[in-house]
């Protein structure tokens, strides 16, 4: 089911949290709303679920206008960050509650609950109470409850935030598997770029109540639309250098790079270099500096380089090098892969 959010505006009292935002999600697609806390991603999610009233704009599921529908009537399943299981009910009662509300017969409820429980692999836990379950199991129950009435849309609000690292990995692929198997349209709210990149077809990166860029994870990583996007994605993060464009890129302290192909801008620009595109193993324009920090990571090392004008670059260098702290180096920047932004932070 296609989701079409148009010119969405949300106010809390006098403060406008989101103004004029539009988002469309194709049927069967999984989209991440990614951004720092307070950027309005959860607000958007709950507006789609119906818990927050929409102050301006429209929302369509397919061809159906659901803008004014109360949450009870929207074909939406929600998984909350803390799972919000009903503590006094067993797992089976939790999953069956949406069906009980729909007044289905108890045999029908039982059948669909066990079918759902099998899908999320908790068929043996149906008589337990939520507090007898581990975090991952609670998460599965929450997923089952959200999916049991076969909604058109699945909304996930930071579903992995309360899990430990190992379970997070497991549930990441589990949620994606369920989404693919059921073919449901899904929106995932997260502040974790890895979650967004690994689980979703497209990412909508949000900032201050606006979508900064929406595209596939690789597109967003390879061609960030702004300095903000470039800085948000990537671990270890991208390094930014202030430069002056005048036929070449003057970095100060004697360093200069050739202008990347197709760039004609002049004046102050910001150069973004990801750590994997700088180092002795690359070919391209050289930058001279001094090694200021080495952080061994096993397969490769993270190396910080301080340039003569005190700007910093970071490099990922395969392990087994003989670089020492304080060494003067001149390494290459892969000019085909760097990003240039103008003074306002927009991509050049």
């Amino acid at each position: 089911m296609r989701i079409e959010l148009q010119n969405f505006t949300k106010r809390f009292g006098d403060t406008t949290v989101i103004e004029d935002m539009s988002l469309s999600v194709a049927s069967g697609e999984m989209v991440a709303l990614l951004g720092p806390s307070g950027c309005g991603k959860s607000t958007t999610l709950f507006a789609i679920s119906g818990i927050h009233r929409i102050d301006g704009g429209t929302l369509h599921f397919g061809d159906r206008d659901v803008t004014a529908l109360p949450p009870q009537d929207r074909p939406v399943g929600v998984v909350f960050q803390n799972y919000a299981l009903y503590p006094h009910m067993s797992v089976a009662e939790n999953i069956g509650f949406p069906l009980k509300v729909q007044k289905l017969s108890s045999s029908e409820i039982k059948r669909r609950v066990s079918e759902m429980a099998d899908l999320v692999q908790i068929g043996n836990l149906l008589s337990r109470k939520p507090q007898q379950l581990s975090g991952g199991q609670q998460q599965r129950v929450a997923l089952a409850r959200a999916l049991v009435r076969k909604p058109d849309v699945l909304l996930l609000d930071e579903p992995l935030a309360n899990l430990d690292a190992k379970l997070r990995l497991e549930m990441r692929s589990e949620i994606r598997r369920l989404q693919r198997e059921t073919g449901i349209t899904a929106i995932l709210v997260t502040h974790d770029q890895i979650e967004a990149m690994s689980m979703c077809d497209r990412i909508a990166l949000m900032k201050d109540g606006n979508i900064e860029q929406i595209s596939t994870p690789s597109e967003m990583y390879e061609r960030p639309a702004s300095r903000y996007v470039a800085g948000f994605l990537g671990n270890p993060p991208i390094s930014f250098l202030q430069a002056e464009a005048n036929g070449q890129l003057a970095l100060g302290g004697g360093n200069a790079l050739a202008l990347p192909n197709g760039i004609t801008a002049t004046g102050p620009v910001t150069l973004g270099v990801r750590p994997e595109h700088f180092g002795p193993q690359h070919r391209g324009s050289s930058v001279a500096g001094r090694v200021s920090f080495i952080e061994p990571q096993g397969r490769e090392d993270l190396i910080d380089v301080i340039l003569p004008d005190d700007q910093r670059l970071r490099a990922i260098v395969p392990a087994g090098h003989d670089i020492t702290l304080g060494q003067e180096i001149s390494w290459q920047v892969d000019l085909d892969r760097v990003h240039l932004f103008d003074a306002e932070g927009a991509r050049l």
Partner: peptide, 8 residues
């Protein structure tokens, strides 16, 4: 919120 979303 979960209860409302479940249709109750």
């Amino acid at each position: 919120m979960a209860g409302v979303q479940d249709g109750a």
